[in-house]
């Protein structure tokens, strides 16, 4: 029974990864993209707009050890996509994070895939891929440093950082 469950779970994961891989679009990285909103002067986006966008963007959460998007995660990204459509000059960096469990290096890979999942979803719902870049912070930057389920759930996330 347990084996069957595990097999079902594994199959599910493989299917998800196949789907994710299948609709993958090239994500153009902007290595110099600012990590701080409104960083640098000029551009067509006002500081107020930028801060407005940042404050309304929702954090996307993930299940333990997973980088596939849950219903809630997809809803949050859909919501974020609508905001980004209203501000076509705003770019985002999808920052992928993990909870503290597991190893630092594997968590870097996991964070990268979470950021990639979010970026791919945004591009499939109409946000130009060149407006989205990704970066993984693994488990290095928890929002909640506590060592419990509640903190871990908050830390498994993709944070969209608005920039120009």
């Amino acid at each position: 029974m347990r084996t069957r469950l595990i097999i079902a779970a594994l199959t599910g994961l493989v299917l998800v990864s196949l789907l994710m891989g299948g609709c993958a679009k090239k994500i153009v990285k902007q290595p110099d993209a600012p990590l701080v909103p409104g960083y640098g002067a000029g551009g067509q986006v006002s500081e107020a707009d930028m801060q407005g966008v940042q404050s309304t963007l929702r954090v996307v959460y993930f299940d333990f050890d997973k980088y596939g998007l849950s219903q809630e995660a997809q809803a949050a990204l859909q919501y974020n996509a609508e905001i980004l459509k209203k501000y076509p000059n705003v770019s985002v960096i999808a920052e992928g994070h993990c909870d503290e469990r597991g190893t630092a290096e594997y968590n870097l890979a996991l964070g990268e895939r979470r950021a990639g999942s979010a970026a791919e979803y945004l591009s499939t719902v109409g946000i130009a891929p060149n407006r989205i870049s990704t970066v993984s912070f693994g488990s290095e930057l928890p929002v909640d440093p506590a060592h419990n389920e509640e903190a871990w759930a908050k830390n498994r996330r993709v944070y969209l950082r608005a920039g120009k």
Binding site: A24, E105, L108
Partner: peptide, 28 residues
């Protein structure tokens, strides 16, 4: 300094090569 991960670099025993994980082409 390629886009994405340039992580977990390890020198080969003779020091001439480096193995690492990169996501420059797609996934790590």
């Amino acid at each position: 300094t390629r886009s994405g991960l340039n992580a977990s670099g390890r020198f080969s025993p003779d020091g001439n090569f480096i193995a690492l994980s990169m996501s420059v082409k797609s996934i790590p």
